[in-house]
Design a protein around this nucleic acid. Structure first.
Lengths: 224, 224
DNA sequence: GGAAAATTACGTAGTTTTACGTAGATGATT
DNA sequence: AATCATCTACGTAAAACTACGTAATTTTCC
């Protein structure tokens, strides 16, 4: 789906973080470290002159906060995705950041795998929240009310039949077993499958499972 | 890996549960409702005369508790797996049940998918704990000490290299991409892959992911 | 009654994965 | 020196999946 590497800009006032990210991202073919910026101005200049897909954004920065920078960037370049990577775990900051337009939020204790995962996820237009962050949000979910957020993948994305097929895929059925069980042709299953992949913006079972988990389609709340 | 359906015996003093399980299991090819039993004696008799792979066991039963029954059954028929399905969420009961030899523990609020998943998991010799149950156990983990349990999949099951490949699989790399990244032949990757499947008792990526999640090899604590 | 969405399905061709067996190289352990 | 675990890799054949395009039925909804 996305063959060319994701261009990543790292915005952080600590150069060490930028350097670290650079070296981490370096031996990945799927992502490419495009550059780093220590200030808002640097960041804006950079985006102006380079192709950037995702920005890894720190929040606590002198001068303008990551939140402001994000808001500004999303105004000028709505297509650029912002992934917050910070140590702040306060609900308000997270909320503000998301409100400002961030597509993902990770705590700095996240490991490389998570970062890479998050990069890919936000790059393809979905949101990504680290598991810790999810917990924090959940806890706060009831009182806080929503801010007209873009709800890119809300739920009725998949048709009932597609969900059914997804369920079976998650239960390790192969295409022909699914066909057998549902009394349809394997060709049909393949078509559904293809549509599921397309709709969910995934390209293989692994991605799909991650999607399903994110949607809570795995164990709980399915149409058992 | 297991072609013939898993023979399931349901032991519960409430007939309605047995009937319910029967109808649920009926339209599954992978499992087969073999029979039901309301008492220990019935259960023992049944096992004596039929092929049984997994027993779904309630705990609160008049006369002998599910724990006793489990202990007795595991003594006589160690190969028969017991899956506790109950509403008891007290740590002591769970622990006793596991101690008695149960391979899995599910709360009755679990849905069909979870039950089916659990059945397959225990049938192939692994343990299965519902997510709630895991939480409960976790909370209590530090003080309670172990009872020489069979530790079928303890951790050092996979070699470092295998873990590395697993990581990449989880990150949606195809075999040839893995080969490329690690500078080895795709044949080698295939071999590793095969060994991983064998060792983890899984047969496809979906199963493997579930395994990985259970082991916490996905996001957190990997060797990033 | 007609448009739109959902479900069904085929063809063709290519790619990827699985299944099994085998086996050399290396390093650690005893 | 021998054993064991790990990592490496090939061959062969079959099974499964992927990619794209197309399109006939139903169903659903306005």
């Amino acid at each position: 789906m996305c063959q060319k590497p994701i261009q990543v800009l790292v915005v952080d006032d600590h150069q060490i973080i930028i350097d670290g990210m650079k070296s981490i991202l370096q031996d990945e073919e799927t992502v490419q470290f495009a550059g780093g910026a220590n200030t808002m101005q640097e960041a804006l200049d950079f985006i102006d002159q380079h192709q950037v897909d995702v920005i890894i954004m720190d929040i606590s920065m002198p001068g303008h906060s990551g939140i402001e920078i994000t808001r500004m960037i999303k105004e000028k370049y709505p297509d650029v995705k912002v992934l917050a990577l910070t140590m702040h775990d306060e609900i308000d900051i997270i909320a503000d950041m998301i409100d400002a337009g961030a597509s993902g939020y990770l705590l700095k204790k996240a490991n490389m795998n998570e970062v890479l995962d998050a990069l890919q996820t936000v790059a393809r237009g979905q949101r990504y929240l680290g598991s810790k962050v999810q917990d924090i949000l959940m806890d706060d979910f009831s009182q806080r009310r929503s801010t007209r957020q873009n709800r890119e993948y809300e739920s009725q994305l998949l048709t009932p039949r597609e969900k059914e097929i997804l369920q079976l895929m998650l239960r390790e059925f192969s295409n022909d077993k699914i066909a057998e069980k549902l009394f349809i042709s394997i060709r049909t299953v393949e078509t559904h499958r293809r549509n599921i992949f397309t709709k969910t913006n995934t390209k293989n079972v692994v991605g799909l499972i991650k999607y399903a988990m994110k949607q809570g389609l795995t164990q709980n709340e399915s149409q058992a």
